[in-house]
């Protein structure tokens, strides 16, 4: 078997479909367990990718969750061509939310999605433009914190 640089996974996350929320992150978690990434890191990746997945469902009308697993780190990319975030700084604040009534009724939209992603990743980058969409990149070193 030839040496491989990265394992790549990609999942399409359909918008406004709460029933399947968490499926992509669950598959990613299983793969990371098979690779043998430390449990504490897997937990953070799972939380980060789950929040990303939920954002795709609630705000973006769907999008893609991608993961690149390297021997020493995992990168998670959450991308969409949704409405975009007008003020990223504001959106990053804990408790800030623009979630719909429907989403809130289901227990989502507490305004913790982006802060949670920021907190669980070792590196976090967000690019967003109104009318263009959003790309969030999270890096997780394969080391316990």
């Amino acid at each position: 078997m030839a040496e491989i640089k990265a394992l790549k996974l990609a999942f399409d996350v359909p918008g406004a479909n709460f029933d399947r929320a968490g499926e992509a992150s669950a598959k990613l978690k299983r793969t990371l367990q098979q690779v043998g990434v430390p449990a504490e890191v897997i937990r953070r990746v799972a939380i980060g990718s789950y929040e990303g997945e939920i954002n795709l469902i609630i705000h973006a009308g769907g999008g893609q969750l991608q993961a690149e697993i390297y021997p020493d780190h995992t990168r998670v990319i959450v991308s969409d061509q949704g409405p975009g975030i007008p003020d990223v700084k504001e959106a990053m604040q804990e408790g800030y939310s623009t979630a719909s009534e429907e989403a809130r009724a289901m227990g989502f939209g507490a305004g913790m999605g982006l802060p949670n992603m920021y907190n669980c990743a070792d590196a976090f980058e967000i690019q967003s433009k109104v009318g263009w969409g959003t790309i969030i990149t999270m890096d997780f070193k394969h080391q316990d914190r």
Binding site: M1, A2, E3, I4, L7, R30, T31, Q33, Q34, V35, G36, V37, I69, P71, H142
Partner: peptide, 14 residues
């Protein structure tokens, strides 16, 4: 769950 103690081998196995 881990397929191999060596992460490179585990990735190949996945």
């Amino acid at each position: 769950m881990s397929l191999d103690a060596d992460i490179n081998v585990a990735m190949q196995k996945v």
